[in-house]
Simulated assay, not measured.
Amino acid sequence: MKKTKLLTITVIGLLLLNFAILAFLLVSGPREHKRPTDRPEGRPNPREIIIERLHFDDNQQKEYAVLIIWHRGEIKKLDTNIRPAKNELYNQLKQPQVHVKIKDSLIAVINANQKQIEETHFKHFEDIKKLCHQDQLEDFNELTEDLSRIFEPNKRPRHD
Rank of each mutant, 00 (worst) to 15 (best):
Met1Cys: 08
Lys3Gln: 14
Lys3Asp: 14
Ile12Val: 15
Ile12Leu: 12
Leu15Cys: 15
Asn18Cys: 14
Asn18Tyr: 15
Ala23Ile: 14
Ala23Asn: 14
Ala23Cys: 11
Val27Ala: 09
Val27Arg: 11
Val27Cys: 10
Gly29Glu: 08
Glu32Met: 11
Glu32Thr: 13
Arg35Leu: 14
Pro36Val: 06
Asp38Phe: 02
Arg39Leu: 11
Gly42Lys: 09
Pro44Arg: 07
Asn45Gln: 11
Arg47Ala: 06
Glu48His: 02
Ile49Gln: 01
Glu52Tyr: 03
Glu52Cys: 01
His55Leu: 10
Asp57Trp: 06
Asp57Val: 05
Gln60Leu: 07
Lys62Thr: 15
Val66Tyr: 08
Ile69Asp: 12
Arg72Asp: 07
Gly73Thr: 13
Ile75His: 00
Lys76Asn: 06
Asn81Gly: 10
Asn81Cys: 08
Pro84Asp: 01
Ala85Gln: 02
Tyr90Ala: 12
Asn91Leu: 13
Gln92Pro: 04
Val100Cys: 00
Ile102Cys: 01
Ile107Val: 08
Ala108Lys: 04
Ile110Leu: 01
Ala112His: 13
Ile117Pro: 01
Glu118His: 09
Glu119Asn: 10
Lys123Trp: 01
His124Glu: 00
His124Ser: 02
Phe125Ile: 04
Phe125Glu: 00
Asp127Gly: 05
Lys130Thr: 05
His133Trp: 12
His133Asp: 14
Gln134Ala: 10
Asp135His: 12
Gln136Asp: 02
Glu138Phe: 13
Asp139Tyr: 14
Asp139Phe: 04
Asp139Gln: 13
Glu145Met: 09
Asp146Pro: 00
Ser148Tyr: 03
Arg149Asn: 08
Ile150Glu: 00
Glu152Ala: 06
Asp160Ala: 10
